[in-house]
């Protein structure tokens, strides 16, 4: 059962990631990224991380991808264009990525003593997770909340219109 679920959702993951590369319109890439993230949530559940599976769906495919789709629609992003620079990136980047993948795969295949994942091993309870998070790691948690607050303020400050150029927002709204 575990093997079948793994094969199905790993296939969905890889298909979504390849589709993200193949599609030329950003909205299609965003939707295939949602497929990747939901499949990853199922894989987290298979590995016993139930809280992370829920957080993956809520935070990634819920919040972040909605933000992406919203920006794609707001900026009216069209199909991408191929230029001379992309040809150079393809010539140099493709062999580099193949080498990177080969190095990663050989490293992983040489790891000794990795176990196997079964459905019998049970699920990490969220109580245990929250006990460690709020007792041992309380300071990093609070620092991260400050980071998120700063990010919110930064996003508002960056996206807000400058006073000297009021025509930009009207142009975007007019589209």
């Amino acid at each position: 059962m575990h093997l079948i679920l793994f094969l199905i959702f790993a296939g969905c993951c890889l298909a979504g990631a390849i589709n993200l590369l193949v599609q030329t319109h950003p909205i299609n890439s965003a939707l295939s990224l949602v497929v990747v993230m939901v499949s990853l949530a199922v894989l987290y559940l298979l590995l016993g991380a139930e809280f992370l599976a829920a957080a993956q769906i809520i935070v990634y495919s819920g919040a972040i991808m909605v933000l992406f789709v919203f920006v794609v629609m707001l900026l009216n992003a069209g199909r991408e264009e191929r230029t001379l620079g992309s040809r150079a990136a393809r010539v140099i980047g493709l062999p580099a990525v193949v080498v990177l993948l080969a190095v990663l795969v050989t490293t992983i295949l040489h790891i000794q003593g990795l176990g196997a994942a079964t459905l019998r091993q049970g699920i990490t309870p969220t109580q245990e997770l929250s006990r460690v998070l709020f007792h041992e790691l309380l300071l990093p948690f609070e620092v991260t909340s400050v980071l998120v607050l700063i990010a919110i303020l930064g996003a508002v400050a960056l996206a807000q219109q400058e006073g000297s150029k009021p025509d930009g927002e009207e142009r975007i709204l007019a589209k």
Partner: peptide, 18 residues
């Protein structure tokens, strides 16, 4: 059958390379 954990790592490496 159980799934070896190296398969998960290989999937992770493939996704990272993509």
């Amino acid at each position: 059958q159980d799934v070896p954990l190296s398969w998960y790592l290989l999937l992770s490496a493939a996704l990272f390379s993509l």
